[in-house]
């Protein structure tokens, strides 16, 4: 149902890895390691800086993919993948963008299941990839009907 969208991207959006956001995020997942929020600990660490937990990009703005219509409710998160070249550093500015990478269907017991894979990537200001990530979403036949498409 999203085959025509494959290859479509958002514009790149400038994001800052904000200190307060990282601290709050690490706390919300109960990851209280000082590398995420303690400045003195970080100075003496190999990173010389606080870093963000691997799933922190959930917080970032990846922009809007024009023409991509998702159901308002009933979207199922099937899979999530991250690949890092290095950890994200607190305080750094990065460019983020989203891109539709796959759309396919599978027959299920309760009708067709529609799969949609979107990449959410982050680059440094020189355009070097820091991380790539893929979210795989599942839309059931019932939810698709509710969307009227």
């Amino acid at each position: 149902m999203y085959k025509h969208m494959i290859g479509k991207s958002s514009n790149k959006v400038l994001n800052t890895i904000e200190r307060g956001a990282v601290k709050k995020f690490a706390e919300s997942i109960g990851d209280l390691h000082p590398i995420y929020s303690d400045r003195d600990y970080a100075k003496n660490s190999r990173y010389k800086n606080n870093i963000a937990p691997p799933t922190f990009p959930r917080v970032l703005d990846f922009g809007v993919i024009e023409g991509l219509i998702l159901p308002k409710s009933g979207l199922i998160h099937g899979e999530q993948r991250y690949h890092y070249e290095r950890p994200l550093l607190v305080g750094e500015d990065i460019y983020c963008y989203a891109k539709v990478v796959d759309s396919f269907e599978k027959a299920g017991a309760n009708g067709t299941m529609y799969f949609l894979a979107i990449d959410n990537n982050g680059e440094d200001l020189q355009g070097n990839i820091i991380f790539t990530s893929t979210i795989v979403m599942i839309i059931t036949e019932e939810v698709r009907k509710g969307m009227g498409i």
Partner: peptide, 26 residues
């Protein structure tokens, strides 16, 4: 939330390395 929690098993080892790939099926 669950995926975020799970990676904290590796936080004590961040002086030795980092999480390069993290793949989860819900």
């Amino acid at each position: 939330w669950t995926m975020g929690n799970l990676s904290k098993l590796f936080s004590p080892f961040l002086e030795e390395g980092f999480v390069q790939d993290y793949t989860i099926r819900f």
